[in-house]
Design a protein around this nucleic acid. Structure first.
Length: 347
DNA sequence: AAACTGTTCAACCGCGTGACC
DNA sequence: AGGTCACGCGGTTGAACAGTT
């Protein structure tokens, strides 16, 4: 794959590297080190730019590069770091020995980005769930919401003319989604989410990790000294809004060990947003979206997701409402139908 | 089997940054 | 202080490959 070889007017070769060129570069660097990349091609006898040699070495020839597909663990790491760091591929690669920034970037763009922007196959409605104030219906509003979501998703997929997966692919995708989010669910992130939900269910809430929308509308408040600690998480109110807010804050805290990054939440117009960033720069945290996906996917975690069915549709709306132009582009690409659907269904 | 379409990923390009003069 | 160079990074490109019609 890649570009075909060609030469520019200076006689410097461009495009795909031949095995002979690879061998020359590999042998030279093993023997002399790369030294100055600018002079390397001349010294090694290669008709390439130093920049091209550096790229070939760092992305392909380096002996410590890990070959083969990304493992689920690596995928989860990429998703987590991308949500925290954004498109800082070099920074992400530095946390993943053996993987190059280019490789991670490509993998994100061709696999994870699409996967995260695609609505997930949802479990069948759990008929054991009842909703408050509606004894006539065996389904919670959330579950019905999910069912509607899935129904519309199927309709939207049917309208899309391209890249419709075959049955086998759908099954594989569904299995992957199950495995993937189950893995996330079982990770520290999922644990935080379960922990905070347990705290709330146990009725130990009280203070305010997140102010109610009525009392603190349009406020932007740093939590504690700029981060969310476990004490804050243990003192939550009983409103649906606060439950959702605190849970997401827990995710942010557990998923990022950097002290330099602070986390903020914002309650505005009855909606609760989550931000993280350094200094004045903040951006919405995507992990809450991930958790939303976890809540809505996989039969494997049905028993746990049931715990969230007491969230109102308003709470779901709060999670799914994403501030525009603020780093959530991965949900916008090729998924307008998805976003539009969420806007319609969550009202 | 051929034509068409979509996907993948190695490589390129342009820009930003730091070191050096 | 300003210019040049070397390097690294992130976005984009496009040929090869895979799947579909």
């Amino acid at each position: 794959m890649g570009r075909s070889p060609c030469c520019n007017k200076d006689g410097v070769k461009k495009g795909a590297w031949s095995t002979e060129e690879d061998q020359i570069l590999f042998d030279y660097i093993n023997k002399h080190g790369h030294g100055s990349w600018r002079t390397l091609p001349k010294n090694a006898g290669l008709l390439r730019w130093g920049k091209s040699c550096r790229l070939r070495w760092t992305n392909y020839l380096r002996p410590d590069i890990k070959r083969g597909p990304f493992t689920p663990d690596e995928e989860a790491t990429i998703v987590k770091l991308q949500g925290t760091l954004g498109n800082k591929w070099a920074a992400i690669a530095s946390q993943m020995p053996g993987r190059t920034d280019n490789e991670i970037k490509n993998f994100w763009n061709t696999h994870l980005k699409k996967r995260l922007s695609t609505p997930l196959p949802l479990p069948l409605p759990n008929t054991n769930i009842k909703i408050e104030g509606d004894s006539s219906s065996p389904l919670s509003t959330t579950t019905r919401h999910m069912a509607q979501w899935e129904s519309t998703r199927v309709e939207a997929e049917a309208r899309l003319p391209s890249s419709r997966p075959g049955k086998q692919q759908q099954q594989q995708q569904h299995k992957f989604n199950q495995d993937y989010y189950l893995k996330l669910w079982n990770s520290d992130i999922g644990k935080s989410f379960r922990d905070i939900n347990k705290v709330q269910k146990d009725g130990r809430g009280g203070g305010g990790g997140c102010e109610s929308s009525t009392s603190q509308a349009s406020s932007l408040t740093k939590l504690g000294s700029g981060s969310v600690d476990d004490d804050t998480l243990a003192t939550t109110t009983t409103t649906t809004t606060t439950k959702t807010c605190s849970a997401a804050a827990a995710i942010v805290k557990r998923s990022d060990s950097s002290e330099a990054i602070h986390h903020q939440h914002k309650v505005e117009g009855g909606l609760c947003y989550y931000y993280e960033g350094i200094g004045e720069e903040t951006k919405p945290c995507r992990l809450d979206v991930m958790m939303m996906m976890m809540m809505s996917s996989s039969d494997s975690i049905t028993s746990t997701t049931n715990e969230f069915t007491n969230y109102s549709d308003t709470a779901l709306k709060q999670l799914l409402d994403i501030p525009g132009g603020s780093g959530m582009d991965f949900l916008e690409d090729e998924s307008d139908d998805f976003i539009n659907f969420l806007d319609l269904r969550c009202v």
